[in-house]
């Protein structure tokens, strides 16, 4: 597969932004895109334009008649409504994270290889798809791996490069399951990413096969 097809300059595809604006993106992916938008005001503004498009579509939608007692029910509900049970979850222990990630609880850091650690973001899962924070030390490569499923990565600090592209803070990478992937950290500081991961990462090569039994990503 031609890697250039996936070259996006660190931006999500239009389809993904559209799905995000419409609310049809899977929750783990939506978390990663939200982090990206917090770091990319131009794309954030574009998503809001798209939501205006959604508002227009809603406005001009052919109405589906509600039940006869719908309005009565609604008025009864607001009379007895005690307001929202709004217990904001506490901020987590990583103030360096963009705002959309601050209120998710985080699991403990786990060592997964030399210069590599990972912690779970307790955002909603979607089947096997979940959100993790991945930190890789300067100059480190992850073992070559193919992907079990769609993977979205947003760089939160530092930078990494794949065989074809470089990703800096705020950049979003949409990985393709067919592309063999070996990112290498190119920043002087560790590279921290938020990742929506679907299925297990299948590690490739002798080191990967050696590590696979020990690495639960």
């Amino acid at each position: 597969m031609n890697a250039r097809l996936h070259s996006s300059g660190g931006n999500p595809s239009e389809e993904r932004l559209l799905a995000y604006a419409a609310g049809s993106l899977s929750p783990p992916e939506a978390v990663v895109v939200a982090a990206h938008l917090a770091l990319r005001p131009a794309n954030d503004a574009w998503v809001r334009q798209l939501q205006t498009v959604g508002g227009e579509f809603l406005d001009e939608a052919a109405p589906a008649p509600m039940a006869d007692d719908a309005l009565m029910r609604a008025m009864a509900r607001i009379e007895t409504d005690a307001g929202e049970v709004k217990s904001q979850p506490p901020l987590n222990d990583m103030p360096e994270l963009p705002e959309p990630l601050r209120r998710y609880a985080l699991g403990p850091w786990r060592w997964i290889g030399p210069g590599m650690r990972v912690r779970d973001v307790h955002a909603p899962r979607d089947g096997d798809c979940r959100v993790i924070l991945l930190e890789i030390g300067p100059g480190r490569e992850t073992p070559r791996h193919t992907h079990g499923g769609v993977e979205l990565t947003c760089v939160l600090s530092g930078a990494y490069a794949t065989e074809t592209e470089r990703f800096d803070v705020g950049d979003l990478e949409e990985a393709d399951p067919e592309v063999l992937h070996q990112p290498r950290v190119v920043s002087d500081d560790p590279c921290l990413c938020v990742v929506a991961l679907d299925g297990q990462i299948e590690l490739d090569g002798w080191l990967g096969r050696l590590m696979q039994p020990f690495v639960r990503l």
Binding site: A21, A22, G23, S24, L25, S26, P27, A30, Q51, T52, G54, G55, E56, F57, L58, S87, Q88, P89, P100, R103, Y104, A105, H122, A123, P124, R125, D126, G127
Partner: peptide, 25 residues
């Protein structure tokens, strides 16, 4: 647009098939 956004967030909540018992922002 505002009502669309409210409904969109609610729809996203509904898609959270495996939401943890944690309150999520």
């Amino acid at each position: 647009t505002w009502i669309f956004t409210i409904a969109r967030n609610r729809r996203l909540d509904m898609l959270r098939r495996d939401a943890r018992p944690l309150p999520v922002p």
